[in-house]
Structure formats: C-alpha cells, structure tokens
C-alpha cells in the first residue's frame, strides 16, 4: 500500500479521496499518482501541478519522479506559512 497525505488547502481538495492506495508498478512515482488523480479530481491535480507544491516520500523532500516502494508515505505539500 501507499499512504497519501495532503496538507493545507490540498487537504480540503482531497477530502473525498482514498488515502491508502494499493502499490502498483504503474503508480510508482509521485508524478504517476498525480496523473492518476487527474482523471477524477481535476481541481486537486491542478493545484498539485503548481510549481511551488513540493512532494515528500517518507518525510524527505524528493523530485516528482522519485521511485516509490510498497509501504511508502507520500505527502503533498503546498507552500508553507508557519511562523
């Protein structure tokens, strides 16, 4: 399984989607997941495609073509606004 996390405004847009998805070789990068989401969640995918949105795997910032493995935690991070 892959565990998906969406933070900030992305969390609101992703409220209806399944956060635990089966691991599959066709969904083995964050980019592939984003493209898959585009089919049913165009608004979310549009936000995910903003250049400021970062992606992390197991809490490390990675590139969108980072290889995923079964059990990974994939988080989508909009620009941070703490402090």
């Amino acid at each position: 399984m892959l565990n998906l996390l969406f933070f900030g405004r992305l969390g609101d847009l992703a409220s209806g989607i399944d956060k635990a998805i089966p691991y599959h070789i066709d969904l083995a990068t964050p980019l592939a997941i984003r493209n898959k989401l585009a089919e049913q969640h165009p608004l979310l995918t549009k936000e995910l495609s903003e250049p400021q949105v970062l992606v992390s795997v197991n809490k490390m910032i990675v590139k969108w073509d980072h290889p995923l493995f079964d059990g990974d935690e994939v988080a989508f991070l909009p620009p941070v606004t703490g402090g």
Binding site: F7, G8, R9, L77, P78, V80, T81, G82, G83
Partner: peptide, 14 residues
C-alpha cells in the same frame, strides 16, 4: 532561524 522557519518548516495557517 525565523526566516528559514517561515519558508521551509512544514506549517500551514488557516
């Protein structure tokens, strides 16, 4: 530390 915290640490304000 404040400048980097504001732009790098994973906090989001609503």
């Amino acid at each position: 530390v404040m400048d980097y915290l504001k732009t790098r640490a994973t906090f989001w304000k609503k």
